[in-house]
Amino acid sequence: MTVRLNALSIVAADMGRSLAFYRCLGLDIPASADTEPHVEVTLPGGMRLLWDTEDVVRSFQPDWVRRGSDGMSLAFEAGSPAEVDKVYAQLVEAGHHGELAPWDAFWGQRYAVVLDPDGNGVDLFAAL
């Protein structure tokens, strides 16, 4: 088989709000993308992160409904344990839901979880 993971996709209820969240995590997304129905960003290493509005998804799947995302999350590595705390605090102060406050996990990481505007889990971590 020659399939390989190439992109991760997020369905956004509010594109501008979703992109603003991911900009806080350091992604270089132009402000002009806030009003686009589809956005793609190529990450270091070639992986792509994609966003589509709910309307775009319904244009090819009319019966689409949001099902939640408890089974998957995106994980962002911070430069230090203190940076995990700082980024978590910034996101929560910006009005995003802190799902799991920073803590020293038994597997050797400072670890926290914040939900993006569409309810997707976003892990923040750094080696202890």
Score class of each variant (00 low, 15 high):
2 T>D: 14
3 V>Y: 15
4 R>C: 11
5 L>I: 14
7 A>H: 15
10 I>E: 03
13 A>E: 13
13 A>T: 13
14 D>L: 00
15 M>L: 02
21 F>D: 00
22 Y>G: 01
22 Y>H: 03
25 L>W: 00
27 L>E: 02
27 L>S: 06
29 I>A: 09
34 D>F: 00
36 E>Y: 05
37 P>F: 05
38 H>E: 13
39 V>Y: 02
40 E>Q: 15
42 T>P: 08
42 T>F: 03
44 P>G: 09
45 G>T: 06
46 G>A: 10
51 W>S: 01
53 T>Q: 09
54 E>N: 04
64 W>A: 08
65 V>D: 10
65 V>Y: 07
66 R>F: 09
67 R>M: 12
67 R>Y: 06
67 R>N: 12
68 G>R: 04
68 G>M: 05
70 D>L: 08
72 M>Y: 11
72 M>P: 06
72 M>E: 09
72 M>G: 07
73 S>I: 04
73 S>C: 09
77 E>P: 07
79 G>I: 08
80 S>G: 08
81 P>N: 10
86 K>I: 08
86 K>M: 10
88 Y>F: 15
90 Q>Y: 03
92 V>T: 13
94 A>W: 00
96 H>F: 07
102 P>G: 07
102 P>Y: 04
105 A>G: 09
109 Q>I: 08
110 R>A: 07
112 A>R: 06
113 V>K: 11
114 V>M: 04
116 D>C: 05
116 D>T: 01
118 D>R: 02
119 G>E: 05
120 N>K: 06
121 G>T: 05
122 V>R: 04
123 D>W: 07
124 L>W: 01
125 F>G: 06
128 L>C: 11
128 L>K: 14
